[in-house]
Amino acid sequence: MSTKELELSPAIAGAYLTKGTIGNVGTPGAPIVHFSLVVVPSKNTVSGTVEITQAIEGGNITIENVKGTIRATGFGKITKIVSLEGEYFQSFPPPAIGIMEQKFFAHMDIDDSWNGQGGFSYGGQKINNVPVKSEN
């Protein structure tokens, strides 16, 4: 599909890429979500990739094919509500052998610049009320 065809497609028109973080960046040992998402406002959808980083052994997790929704609030400083979910495989810690499927969920209450508050859960951990910061 050519760029011209993409621009004219009603499902793609207005789509944009956004990148940022969810978490207490700069806090030693804090898990941080790095997101790279394609947003299609006309469809209220977001999709992309998430990487969770944490300064511990085996602390980096990449989750591809993350999907979710984006909704406008219609008032106040928080103009958008975003929810994300995805799945990833995690190896059992040694000496065990095997892998298990884990779920990832995230939520963001953000302004038009993709800054605000949010939280996420993965692998039995829940992190709430942390900053969302745009890297755009």
Rank of each mutant, 00 (worst) to 15 (best):
V50R: 04
G76N: 01
I127M: 02
V50F: 06
I127V: 04
E85A: 09
A55M: 07
N24G: 14
V82H: 01
V130Y: 03
I22T: 07
Q125T: 04
E85G: 06
V46H: 00
N65F: 11
K4N: 14
G29E: 11
I22D: 10
M108H: 08
G98W: 03
M108V: 02
G58W: 03
S91R: 02
A96Y: 11
I99Y: 08
S2P: 11
G119R: 10
N65Q: 04
P41I: 00
G59A: 15
I22K: 07
K4M: 15
G14P: 12
G124Q: 00
L6W: 15
Y16M: 11
M100H: 06
E87P: 03
I110V: 02
M108P: 03
S113K: 13
I56D: 11
A96D: 13
P94M: 02
V40M: 12
G23L: 02
G116C: 06
E87M: 09
A106G: 00
T27R: 04
S134V: 04
E51Q: 11
S83A: 08
L17P: 10
Y88T: 04
G20D: 05
L6P: 15
S36P: 06
P28M: 05
G48K: 03
I97T: 04
I127Y: 03
G58R: 03
L8W: 13
N128W: 11
G124R: 01
E64Y: 09
I70P: 04
L8M: 13
D111N: 06
Q54C: 05
L6S: 14
S121T: 06
I61Y: 07
I78Y: 11
A72R: 10
A72D: 15
T79V: 05
I99W: 07
H34P: 09
M100D: 15
E64Q: 07
P41N: 10
F89T: 15
I32L: 09
N128H: 14
G86Y: 05
M100N: 15
V39Q: 05
Q54I: 07
P10V: 14
S2R: 09
T62H: 01
S47N: 11
P95V: 10
G118D: 02
K103Y: 10
T18V: 09
F104H: 02
E101Y: 07
